[in-house]
Design a protein around this nucleic acid. Structure first.
Length: 851
RNA sequence: GGGAGCGUGGCGGAAUUGGCAUACGCAGUGGACUUAAAAUCCACCGCCGCAAGGAUUGUGGGUUCGAGUCCCACCGCUCCUACCA
């Protein structure tokens, strides 16, 4: 025998598999289909441990499904556009394309070295023109459908990235998701995708996603943020306090509190603010508050508690429910981009309004009272307002009874309460309000003022306005040689932006903004199904055939951004008639992070364990198995070098055991015998150890199968280790005492079960040692007989009043009566004179006796 | 402020529907082999106790013949989200 040497066998088998095209996918296969997908990498440098974990999970699933007889689509590609490439290019004086494609080559080599079973002919790179061409095509399709809009809006601007950001890309305390700079608010004209049209469906369809973690669904639901309530129209008064024909509408989730509205608020950015105060005595103070809001947001945002600032505008509105005149204030805690940018303030029912009222001395009349409130007895029948200020320390936002609320007094109040309903009905009858649903979700801002992205296919013509690039003129090719390191951008390339208007032929100007990279990653999973199509992004029949993805695997950090956008794209493309389904990812597995000493590995912290180094020491097989063994896939994993060494030892042990089982004595390099036979063992030991091994084989096949199905790779591997331990005990038998059929079956089973985890050593043992002709990876997954997995006798614990007092051994098919008798006999002494009140027999587990 | 999740040996973790807590591995201890070391093999290895035995899954209660698992309260940690009206 020769020594296990991963560096010899791993490259060898990779070459053989590539030659045999083992991982190619057959579109025409009549096998059942399975689509396993891992989130494609961003080519930011070398492959890291997070990738190794992500792709090892996907690879085990893919290989397992293939052995189970599925035709498995298991593709890979690169999410190649984006800002890091520009930043790196600036640093290195290179171009984003050079940097990106060099990294892709590096990563590709690493992924191949890990033996992930991708069909490489389906590789998709988003910065390749034959991919982004179809991204532009889809953009035009969405435009046709009315889902694209260019409009002016307050947007998030990252001063370091020099570009706008989507709402989803502003994270934490208002910082850029990528560079962590503080994001500024700017009013700019930008391109939007109208994802809000799908808000309700994006929410509703979460119910279909039974294969998604609840956590992710919850996060998406929160992000879409549906709240039910009403719009209420307040009549605006002119500068003299007289009612006008104009109205200002607010959104509220608590119409039942409308009688408690003692002031009215506008967001600082609200267009009416300037109009109200210009050339009035209020102008200076209001301007101060508006400026404070604009400049202080960044600083204030990082503090948890924010001081509320406001100023009176000098104007009033009329409350439609009681015709009361209330003052309009401007305040920085009102957001322009949620609801209508105007708020009816009810300080007794909303903590923010409460604090604001206290600060500025505004009235806080109680309108909803809990029945145990001291005020309740006094006010329960009170229609007119007699209490103008509550004695409370905080607002009361819970359920209660409406008081001081005219004819509504006495009705139940609270969110979605009967009282709220009644108020809405009265407002509606008066034409002053209506029930409404409000979403937190904003439209998706997709334009970026950056070079390295997919060009937006639009042209500005002085005569025709904004004109889409005709489909026949696609693709709009991104010049690859723009030198961002010298500050160059698309706006410096006349040959790019100087065009003729497609409609009137006049000189026009091409859009030089590019699309958010998340547009590229919102449909790549569809392209994999039909990667070489040069007529369409994908053929509908082909996509429908493979989709939806059976198992998607990736990091939790994409729980909102990428997954929400992809769901939106799928629904929009469905409505365009391009797809026949509504949800792209049937099952989702969010894998945990790989950490070192409790911290995320990162280059800046200098605590990165490089996969390449680990492969160089222990080989890809040990690394793959280790990273799956150390923790369940969805939990964070603490890196341990000793753990990896342990896995390497395990692979070595398998290697020796299979040699021994196949009849070859195991020797080391110097010819010393490593096989240790126990010469004291006789035929009886051979029988009992043989029976045990047979039982274990059946049990472990069943266990590993169900564990892989449930993604419990860690316990699947520990079950294989248990089998290996049983084998270890069996091969203590000298060869003459062994059962050849059993030995061979054990060896084959070990290798087959390990094939998805450790593909190289498995094929080496399968073909070279066990002498099989075809690759282990083309074998059917082993089957088992549950009946043979059970021992003939079983040990039961006997509990007396909940404490284990004895153990009995009975035949595993013994009937309950017999077990009961045995158990009572075993604890007879402990029972003594006491009466047996109850006996519970749990077959195969224990007997519980109560006295 | 709102939402979600998690607490089990020295460590990573296991216990699938309520049924013998600590599987499997790491680390550790002892032994065999060796001139020696490494590798390998064998054995031990949660806590208190010399032992018999006892207590034990963050803490306290509850349901149950039986609770790591279910229910209530509390403590601690993590993640998401946030002036969302």
């Amino acid at each position: 025998m020769y020594q296990y040497d991963p560096h010899e066998i791993e490259p060898k088998w990779q070459a053989i598999w590539a030659e045999a095209n083992l991982d190619a996918v057959d579109d025409k296969s009549d096998k059942p289909r399975y689509y396993a997908l891992e989130m494609f990498p961003y080519p930011s440098g070398d492959v890291h441990m997070g990738h190794v974990r992500n792709y090892s999970i996907g690879d085990v699933i893919s290989r397992y499904k293939r052995m189970q007889g599925f035709e498995v689509l298991h593709p890979i590609g690169w999410d190649a556009f984006g800002l890091p490439a520009e930043n790196a290019a600036i640093k290195q004086g290179s171009t984003p394309a050079t940097w990106t494609y060099a990294n892709i080559e590096k990563q590709r080599a690493s992924l191949k070295r890990m033996a992930f079973s991708y069909d490489w002919s389906r590789k998709v790179i988003t910065s390749d023109v034959d991919y982004y061409h179809w991204g532009q095509w889809i953009f035009l399709k969405l435009w046709e459908m009315g889902l694209v809009e260019r409009r002016s809006s307050p947007v998030n601007w990252c001063p370091d990235c020099m570009t706008v950001l989507a709402n989803e890309q502003v994270v934490g305390d208002g910082v850029c998701w990528r560079c962590k700079s503080i994001v500024q608010r700017k009013e700019l004209e930008q391109w939007f995708l109208k994802i809000t049209k799908y808000a309700q469906e994006l929410l509703d369809d979460l119910d279909q996603l039974s294969g998604w973690p609840d956590r992710v669904k919850q996060m998406q639901a929160n992000w879409v943020g549906r709240s039910t309530g009403a719009e209420v129209d307040f009549t605006l008064c002119d500068a003299d306090g007289e009612p006008t024909a104009e109205q200002i509408t607010v959104f509220t989730t608590r119409p039942d509190t409308l009688f408690g509205c003692s002031f009215f608020l506008l967001a600082p950015e609200h267009p009416l603010v300037r109009e109200f105060v210009s050339d009035t005595a209020y102008e200076a103070e209001v301007a101060r508050v508006v400026e404070l809001a604009a400049s202080a947001t960044a600083v204030e945002r990082s503090k948890g508690e924010r001081e509320k600032n406001g100023a009176f505008t000098g104007r009033y509105v009329i409350n439609p429910i009681n015709s009361e005149k209330v003052p309009i204030w401007v305040s920085d805690y009102v957001m322009m981009d949620y609801g209508t940018g105007a708020v009816m303030a009810v300080p007794s029912g909303d903590q923010r309004d409460f604090e604001f009222a206290r600060k500025y001395g505004l009235a806080i009349p109680p309108v909803i009272l809990a029945t145990d409130d001291p005020l309740y007895e006094q006010l329960k029948d009170q229609r007119e307002r007699i209490v103008g200020d509550v004695p409370w320390l905080a607002a009361y936002a819970g359920d209660g009874v409406m008081v001081q609320s005219g004819s509504f007094t006495g009705q139940p109040g609270g969110k979605d309460s009967a009282g709220a309903q009644a108020v809405i009905e009265q407002l509606e009858a008066a034409g002053k309000g209506r029930p409404t649903v409000n979403f937190r979700l904003r439209d998706w801002l997709i334009s970026r003022q950056r070079y390295w992205g997919n060009p937006i296919p639009a042209i500005y013509c002085d005569a025709c306005g904004i004109v889409p690039v005709p489909e026949a003129d696609l693709p709009v090719v991104l010049p690859m040689d723009v030198d961002v390191s010298k500050g160059e951008s698309l706006a410096d390339r006349p040959e790019f932006y100087e065009v003729k208007c497609p409609q009137c032929g006049a000189a026009a100007h091409r859009e030089t903004d590019t699309m958010d990279t998340f547009t590229c990653s919102s449909w790549y999973y569809l392209r994999y199904t039909d990667p070489h199509n040069d007529k369409l992004p994908f053929e509908r029949a082909t996509a429908d055939n493979w989709m939806p993805v059976d198992q998607y695997i990736g990091g939790i950090e994409h729980a909102i951004l990428h997954l929400l956008y992809s769901r939106f794209f799928t629904k929009a493309l469905r409505d365009a008639g391009l797809l026949g389904f509504s949800e792209p990812f049937k099952n989702l597995l969010t894998q945990g992070m790989v950490k070192l000493n409790g911290e995320t590995m990162s280059k800046s912290k200098g605590n990165v364990v490089a996969p390449e180094d680990m492969i160089a020491r222990y080989g890809a097989d040990a690394l793959r198995a280790y990273i799956l063994f150390m923790a369940p896939p969805d939990k964070d994993l603490e890196w341990s070098q000793e753990g990896l060494e342990g896995m390497y030892r395990f692979v070595n042990r398998i290697w020796r055991s299979v040699f021994d089982l196949s009849g070859e004595a195991v020797v080391d390099e110097e010819g010393n015998l490593l096989s240790v036979y126990d010469k004291s063992l006789g035929p009886d030991d051979a029988t009992s150890r043989g029976a045990e091994l047979n039982r274990e084989l059946h049990r472990v096949i069943g266990k590993v199968s169900s564990d892989i199905e449930r993604f419990n790779f860690n316990t699947a591997i520990s079950a294989i280790m248990e089998l290996a331990n049983t084998v270890q005990s069996y091969i203590k038998l000298p060869h003459g005492l062994r059962d050849d059929e059993l030995s061979t079956r054990a060896a084959r089973t070990l290798v087959l079960l390990l094939a998805p985890f450790t593909p190289h050593v498995s094929d080496e043992l399968w073909q070279r040692v066990l002498g099989e002709q075809d690759s282990v990876h083309l074998q059917p997954w082993p089957s088992y007989d549950p009946a043979q997995a059970i021992a003939s006798t079983v040990e039961l614990a006997v509990q007396l009043n909940g404490k284990i007092k004895a153990r009995i051994t009975v035949a595993s098919d013994a009937d309950e009566e017999e077990v009961r008798r045995e158990a009572l006999f075993a604890v007879a002494e402990a029972i003594g004179e006491r009466d047996v009140r109850k006996v519970v027999v749990v077959p195969g587990k224990l007997v519980s006796v109560v006295v």
